[in-house]
Amino acid sequence: MGSFGQKHSVLPGFGPTLGYTIFYLSIIVLIPLSALFFKTATLTWDQFLVAVTGPRVLASYRVTFGSALFAAGVNAVFGVLLAWVLVRYRFPGRKMIDALVDLPFALPTAVAGITLASVYSPNGWLGSYLEPRGIKVAFTPLGIMVAMIFIGLPFVVRTVQPVLEELDHEIEEAASCLGANRWQTFCRVIFPTMLPAVLTGFALAFARAVGEYGSIIFIAGNMPMVSEITPLLIITKLEQYDYAGATAIATVMLVASFLLLLSINLLQKWSRRFAD
């Protein structure tokens, strides 16, 4: 019998490849990540609590997680719309839009940051239109949400598209034969099939928005207590040599990321079970 309880296999190279995988994973990912926990462990529990629950820190959680929640929600709604339109309808430029949906994945965050900031700034293309009407986007939490919508845009679209593509037309036809109108068919038949994918996409967009730095800091006001995101607070503390504080907050972010990753995995397991 092989190691790790593997079934006997004819193919060679299991030992070396698995060994290298675990080795490289450890030195690049696991050991550095554990450094974070070890450093935080040097703080006493009280010191840790003070570092992660100060008013400025709490405000940054509110800004970061609150904006990410809103942005992921917007992306869920428009992502479903986009996926629907891309899968179900034909129109000129469809293939190009389909490819362009992945732009936030490919565009570096700093570039996204400065272009969003300039578009929504008071004399930008949209800012000069919105600000006289009282809608301040740049340098406010609203700007943070706009940036988060941008970077989360592909996630829901890309998780929902495969589900819609595989949806059997026969099911919709059957519903229609049984007397459902189009809206009922959508609500009772199509949407429940999409729901796990929508939730997965939502969670992915949320997780990405929470950790994002480069796209947001240019358009955010970065004012403490008002429009400061948690990653920026970590960097500010680093620049002030408050390593303990920075590490404590980073640990909170990391734990949040792990929890989100776990939820996403569970959601993906749920969608796969649903698909069968």
Binding site: G211, I234, L254, S257
Partner: peptide, 13 residues
Amino acid sequence: SVSPVVSGLIYVL
């Protein structure tokens, strides 16, 4: 899934 800032921080640590 880790924030880029945290990714940099762990190497500083």
